[in-house]
Simulated assay, not measured.
Amino acid sequence: MKAIEMRETGGPAVLQWVERPRPELSGPDDILVRLHAAGVNPVDTKIRRNGPLIPDGLPAILGCDGAGVVEAVGESVIRFKPGDEVWFCWGGLGGPAGNYAEYRVIDQHLAQAKPRALSMIEAAAAPLVLLTAWEALHDRARLTEGQRVLIHGGAGGVGHVAIQLARAAGARVCTTVSSPEKAEFAHALGAEYCINYREEDLVESVMDWSEGQGVDIALETVGPEVFRQTIPAMAHYGDLVTILDPGPELDLKEARVRNLRLSLELMLAPMLRNLPRARIHQGEILRRCGDLIDHGALRIHVSQTFPLEQAPEAHKLIEQGHVTGKLALTMT
């Protein structure tokens, strides 16, 4: 099979177009998936630059997200049969088990039936950002109807689905964007108010929108400085969730006075640790997101696709920043 492999860390050029043996079923619960597409995420570029997240992970095939058609099943598989369409988020953190490839073997319990309303490309681009946004909003922040929610980077991969998930739960949403075009995109997804962070003050804008109360929930997707800037925009007893390391230089006096609940979100944890219950929970999240998608309450925006052999170009685009929605690699 054709695959993209990295044998050392570095720039996009370390991603090499190679021929590798097609993986074989090795356990009774395995399914062999012929991948049609793979999502490209910022974590892929970080692993390429800094190294795999698992020991002895080189050479590695990157790519956590995938979607394709089941070609063969192990003797104990009851959830799928050949010809079924599936999507999943698993692998890509080091070693050969990644999705920048034409085939993938995966345990049946780690895959879900692809939503009917999604193309293969959309399905491949969706799982990691859906799991991240859902866990941040529902599991960490305990989102409820009627709350005011701030989503940073509302036109990005996590941001654009977080807006929709918050709206589906009955919340009011404001978001940060970098241009009028991205504001228009975010409004179309359900954002009530957009803040151009290049031209407007975050705290003043949030307080104007929230009638001086601040937001009940904020999802921070940018970095430590934005995390710090968001604290005074929070309502008292609010939830501030970040998907990144907030950094060592934190002054939390104001967060303490506001009685904020600060949460960290890393949806990769079940892959990094032996967390079977968390894996089951993530499967349920994908199933519930699939229902929202098939009922028209959630959509995935893929702004650009690349043939598999052009994975380095996709990495370059992500590292330039400001991608709208998601990128994907295609195998067919």
Rank of each mutant, 00 (worst) to 15 (best):
G146H: 03
A168D: 02
V70P: 15
K46I: 03
R273D: 14
P307R: 00
G27D: 13
E265F: 03
V33H: 13
L252N: 07
M234N: 14
E225W: 08
P180A: 00
V70Q: 14
M120D: 15
A162H: 01
H138I: 02
D29Y: 10
D29N: 06
A188H: 03
V43G: 10
G157V: 02
V215M: 10
G214V: 01
Q108M: 04
D291A: 15
L317H: 02
D30M: 12
E254M: 09
P12M: 00
G238H: 01
F80T: 04
E309G: 05
D30H: 13
P276Y: 14
L260N: 08
D139R: 11
Q229T: 07
E199R: 14
Q108C: 06
A125N: 02
D294Q: 01
Q112R: 15
A269T: 12
E225L: 14
Q108Y: 07
G27I: 08
A60Q: 06
L58F: 15
L53M: 15
V14C: 09
E75C: 01
I78N: 13
I78S: 14
E313P: 09
P23T: 06
T45W: 07
L202V: 09
R20P: 13
L150D: 08
I31G: 12
E200Q: 15
D84C: 01
V149F: 02
G83C: 07
S76A: 14
L252R: 12
K253V: 11
L32P: 15
R172H: 08
D294G: 05
E200P: 12
P96C: 01
A171F: 00
E184F: 04
G68S: 04
H295M: 01
S179E: 09
Q320G: 09
V129R: 00
L268I: 06
L62V: 14
A155R: 06
H36W: 11
I300D: 01
Y193W: 03
P312G: 06
H295T: 05
P232V: 09
A297T: 13
E184T: 02
F185W: 05
Q112G: 05
P232Q: 03
R49L: 11
L219A: 06
P276L: 13
E220F: 11
N99T: 05
E135C: 02
R288I: 06
D245V: 07
H138A: 07
L240F: 03
H301E: 01
V129L: 04
R140D: 03
T9M: 10
E192K: 00
R140A: 10
I285Q: 10
A188F: 00
V43I: 15
M271Y: 09
A162L: 00
R256N: 15
I47P: 12
